[in-house]
Design a protein around this nucleic acid. Sequence first.
DNA 1: CCCGTACTACGATGCCTATCGTACGAGCTG
DNA 2: CAGCTCGTACGATAGGCATCGTAGTACGGG
Lengths: 116, 116
Amino acid sequence: MTTPTPSRALDHPPRDAIRLEGVLHALSDPMRLRIVRSLAAAEEELSCSLFDLPVSKSTTTHHFRVLRESGVINQCYRGTAKLNGLRRDDLDALFPGLLDSLLRAAALQADRLREG
Amino acid sequence: MTTPTPSRALDHPPRDAIRLEGVLHALSDPMRLRIVRSLAAAEEELSCSLFDLPVSKSTTTHHFRVLRESGVINQCYRGTAKLNGLRRDDLDALFPGLLDSLLRAAALQADRLREG
DNA sequence: CCCGTACTACGATGCCTATCGTACGAGCTG
DNA sequence: CAGCTCGTACGATAGGCATCGTAGTACGGG
């Protein structure tokens, strides 16, 4: 093979097709916001199975797809695993500072709700 | 009367009840994002009737209610008019820098899409 | 007191979506 | 090959939501 291990291809929207409304919609779901926070905390790509979400596997797959199709994350197969990473470069280029503000807001709210 | 012109009361979530997910959901709709951008541009409160949205009046009412109930705007009656204003103080206190990042992102995207 | 303006309430409709379970495919590992 | 793990596809379901039209309420002005 000429290609390393691309296996099945996954459709990602090009940078120009990413829409703010779509990104906000993707992040307005608690599960997806949680996923994105974990991805931002980890400095490497994470496989879907590392996330222990309180929903079924089907639903988890659904949420990752929404995040990919809205342009928030990129996904690639690596063997049987599927690696997920934030599209930081694209998001920062389109919406400078937004991702960091969102992550900071999410962290502040998590602290606030945890401590009361 | 002791009160100026409160007329009918409108329920607003207190600052502590505002949730990031709710704010993002509210802003993920193109009509509502448009409303919020207009409110941010105007330095005063605007009545609903000043917005010329491509939807019916019923739908406009619906969008303003979603914005109010998510904590993004405050509304008060003034005669027959209903004045709308961003809850900047509350949002900035809860999520520092987020509102400005969102407005900037929306402006950049609007420019990008307009000029192509 | 009547009318016009501004907004609302309500019901209907059609679409979107979060969730699940089950059955399946793709790739490693023995 | 056999079996395991990871993730997908599909169908079902229930609830949410953006939209509309119509009918109605609240308020200010003549």
